[in-house]
Amino acid sequence: MKIFRSVNAVQGALDRVSADGVRGWCASSPAVSIRVNGMPYFSAFCHVERRDVQAALGIEKPVGFNVPLRLALGDMVEVAGVDCQPLPGSPQRVGASAWLPVSAAQRPAFAPLEALLKAFGASHFKPFFKRSAELTAVALRGNNQPDMLVKLAGTPAHIADIKAFYRQVIEPHALPAPGLIPPSTTPLPNDYLIYRYVDGASYSAASQLSDSARQQVIQLLATLHAIPGGTLKRENTQQPYWQQLQRQVLRQALATLDIAYVRQIVSMRRLVQRLPTVLSHGDLHAGNVLVDDTEGALALIDWDRWGALPVGYDEACFLRGLPFRQALDYLPKQRDLRLGFAIISFWLGVVQNEQFRTTSQAQEMMGYIEGRL
């Protein structure tokens, strides 16, 4: 699941699309509508148990859907709630792990890729989409080039930030991330971020990863956090997810008119401000962990939000959806790390579901926080 979703956004996810059907969850709506290649196709009720999601949201009602359908390779599938807002993870392509022949670029959804495919001399490609259905990246395969992944949108400041982070952090410390390729060594224009394409499976929640994979990610985060930031600075200093999270938590607390609860949130904010900041991924949900299921190796992708963030932030984002005590057991026994993890986990819960603070999960987090003060 995505790390930050305001309470006003759709609470759900399109987890998987295949030739046999679609699977996901939606807590904002009792049913979902499914469109295929831009045309209405099917509607389904959300009546399947999803214990991982229900535990994270602190609710008992089933929120999952698992819809058998007959779909074709390359079909574009969109799923939305009854209010027509698309679910996170939508749209998805049937056979997203399969390479499409370049002839498939004739479909309207792939029209923006035509010039790029031609410049590369691609024989096959894999498109990747944002939640807004906008193309965000494409993997390219050609006869005389290694497979590459091209990010399609990025300001000069953003591109400079990523290059600096690779040069000063990822490469010298051998962090497992897709290699960055200089555009000058490719037939592509210079205004793209180009990576070596890494094959692997990604998941919508940490609960779907193996215990070994979760442990590996936490160990990698410990390595990352120990790297001194030094003179490393972003040209684009904004950290929108972290800033939005803080604002949304305080707004929701004030809206409750519950003075005791507002004081709790203000106390948490003061605690977080006193925690050390560490070099962080900034967007580490399970979907940004690629797992090689044959060898067990993994890579962290989408480092666009890297920066100095409170200790525990990355861990809270990554382990979200697991029961609090189970997630806590993955962390080193470091007071600041665990305290930051507990506070940010609580905040992530309440911004997605206003009633989360009344659940047993939230009470357990609050008890842990108060016990460390």
Rank of each mutant, 00 (worst) to 15 (best):
N143E: 13
A13H: 15
F120K: 00
F165S: 01
I181L: 08
L175V: 05
R320E: 15
G74N: 01
A222Y: 02
G81P: 10
V262T: 11
V48K: 13
P323G: 10
R357M: 03
P156G: 15
G21A: 12
P182M: 06
A105T: 10
Q168Y: 03
D258V: 08
Q252D: 04
W303P: 09
S207W: 02
V351D: 04
P228N: 05
A153L: 14
I343E: 03
V7N: 14
P332C: 02
L135Q: 10
Q273Y: 04
Y41S: 07
G282N: 00
V94H: 04
Y368H: 07
A286K: 06
D52K: 06
A164G: 09
T256M: 07
R196H: 12
A13W: 08
Q238F: 12
L290D: 06
I344Q: 07
A119T: 04
L309F: 10
L250G: 02
S90R: 07
S29H: 03
R247N: 03
Q216M: 10
K126A: 02
A9H: 13
W306S: 05
I162M: 08
V32I: 14
I343M: 14
I344S: 09
N8R: 14
V311M: 07
V262F: 08
V262A: 00
P156C: 12
D20Q: 13
S123R: 10
K130G: 12
G282A: 03
D191H: 12
W306V: 03
P187V: 03
I259R: 15
T358W: 12
S210P: 05
P40F: 03
I34C: 05
L254K: 14
G12L: 04
P146Y: 00
D283W: 06
G81E: 12
A96I: 13
D336R: 06
S43I: 04
D329Q: 15
F318M: 09
G371E: 07
V82F: 08
Q92D: 00
S90F: 08
A153K: 11
P182T: 03
P187I: 04
G24D: 07
W25S: 00
D199M: 01
L209C: 11
L71E: 00
G121A: 08
T186A: 11
Q238H: 13
R107E: 07
T294V: 11
S280K: 08
Q326F: 02
A13N: 14
A174R: 04
Q355K: 09
